[in-house]
Every structure is written in structure tokens, then in C-alpha cells.
Simulated scan of single mutants.
Amino acid sequence: MTDSYAADCRAAQGPARLGVLDAVSVRCVLFDFDGPVCALFRNHPAPDVAARLLAALPEEIARTVGTVDGAPVTDPQAVLRAVGELAPGGARVAELEAWLTEEEIRAAESAVPTRHAAELIRALDGAGVALAITTNNSPRAVRRYLERTGLARHFGGHVYGRRHDPRLLKPHPDCLERALKWTGVTAAEAVMIGDAEADLRAAERLGVRFLGYATRETKSAVLYGAGARVVVDELPDNLTELAGQVRHVGQL
């Protein structure tokens, strides 16, 4: 979609601006960030980040952070969450969150755009649909990526990411609640696009419709197993296709 076409769409007034999405009552789309918008850690591997976070912790704390099967921890947010459970609100948690934020900002510099994400974002904004990022990542990293790729203007500042308390990470619906509050949209008028069970659970708690995104069959199986109704392996690049997927979510 060209910028001139998007501008023409924004100039329209009233319900007609939403076009095909008005038929499925979509007035806001909430995007998870890492996955649906970009591959944040494609060139700044998450397992390496997790290892650096663990190495920065005192040994007695690092020993308590592990996986159920004893395999190495590869998710940096799992490290933050685990430490947050040990000492909620403590200085160690704040320090670890700050380290993770800096790692994510570096990752945002080389993050790889998700196929069709930019096209879908531009089409939604051009149709007058409110957009927001609802993520467990740092809002500073999200904004850096959006600025680097020219997408920041489409979100109008609606970036709702990690706060200092890891207990508010999804599946807690905190970031979705903030997005709905500040966009002025009801849960029934929103759709979340996410790639993790935590995204689904957060959406479920608020009554937000959920469209799953997964490029691997294993992740798709997890989402379907968790109760997702529709999971796509590629984002739609137009609103008609998105409306069809949302309608399918509502019918099942």
C-alpha cells in the first residue's frame, strides 16, 4: 500500500473507514512484538542473552534458575521471571531488567521484519483501525525497531511493554489492559495477534479475540493445544484476508 493511498483512507470519516473490518467489529489490533512484528533475536541470539544474564547473577541465584528438564535456559525472559519470583520488587530484579532492556535494544538494531507485517500495519492504520504493541519486551526496544523501520507513526505511541515487575508479564493481561484503556477500544472490538500461549491466555482473560501466528508446526501445535481457534503461518497482507480469519475465529 502506498503512503498516498493510506492518506486517502485516513481522510475518510465514520464507520466506512473500517470497510471489511467493520463487518467483524474490529476497531483495534494488538500485536505481540517478537514474532508477529519481527524476529527480534534473529541476529542477536536469545540463548546467548540468557547466558549473559545468568553469568551476571551471583552463583547461588543463578543455580536456582533452570528448566523443568534440566536443559540450559535459552529464554532471557525466563531468567527475569525466575529472579522476579525469588525477590519481587528487589534491586536485583530492577538491575536484571535493565540489562535485558539493553540487550533487547541491541537486538532491535538487527531484528528481521516478519513477512507482511509492515503491509498489514500500514493497511490497518490507513483504514482507521487503532494499533498497539502488547509485549513482554522492553518498550524502548520496540520503539527503536519501529523508528528504524519507519513504522512508529502507525502506532501513535501505543507501545505497551514490560514494566519493572516481572509478575505483570503475559499471561498477566497488564499490557493488554493498558492498550485497551489508552486506545479507548473495548475488548470485544479488539483482536490480538500473538505467537505464544502466554499471549492467548492474556487475551482470554479480557475477552479479546486471538489470532495465532506460528511459522513452525511445533509452535502451531502448542497454540492449538492451548485452545487457539485459528493459527496462521503467514500474516495477511490485506484487510479482506484478515477479516476472513477474524470471522473464522468468531464462528468456531
Rank of each mutant, 00 (worst) to 15 (best):
E177D: 13
L180S: 07
E85Y: 12
D199L: 08
H154M: 05
R52E: 11
I121K: 01
A11G: 09
A130H: 02
R10T: 04
R178G: 04
L40M: 13
T149H: 15
A203G: 08
D199S: 07
A202G: 10
V29L: 06
T183D: 03
V249N: 05
K219Y: 10
G150N: 02
A12C: 12
G84F: 08
C38H: 04
D69L: 09
L57A: 08
C28E: 07
G66L: 09
D195I: 07
P15V: 09
E177V: 12
G225W: 06
L235E: 07
A196Q: 13
F41V: 05
C9H: 09
A16S: 14
A221D: 11
V231D: 02
T101Q: 14
L176P: 04
K170S: 06
L151N: 03
A152L: 11
G66K: 12
N238D: 15
R92H: 14
A130I: 00
S25Y: 14
L40S: 01
A78G: 12
V93D: 01
F31K: 06
E147L: 10
W99L: 15
L40Q: 05
R148C: 01
A78V: 12
R216V: 06
L124M: 02
R163A: 13
V185G: 01
R144P: 03
R162H: 02
Y213M: 07
M1A: 13
L86V: 11
E234G: 11
A78K: 12
L30C: 05
E97R: 15
P15A: 11
R209A: 14
L239D: 00
V112M: 13
V230M: 07
E189M: 04
R42L: 14
V185N: 08
A11Y: 12
Y213P: 00
Y5R: 15
A16G: 12
V112D: 13
N238R: 13
G161M: 06
H248Q: 15
T186F: 02
R106S: 10
H44E: 12
V29F: 04
E109A: 14
F31N: 04
A56N: 10
V93G: 04
G84N: 06
P166H: 00
E119M: 11
A12D: 10
L242Y: 00
C9P: 00
Q245F: 15
E60Q: 15
R106V: 09
A51S: 13
A228S: 13
R92G: 12
P139C: 08
G207V: 01
L223E: 00
E241M: 12
D8C: 14
L86D: 09
M192I: 13
A118D: 10
H158W: 01
A188F: 12
E234F: 10
T215Q: 11
A141Q: 05
E217W: 12
A107V: 07
R122C: 06
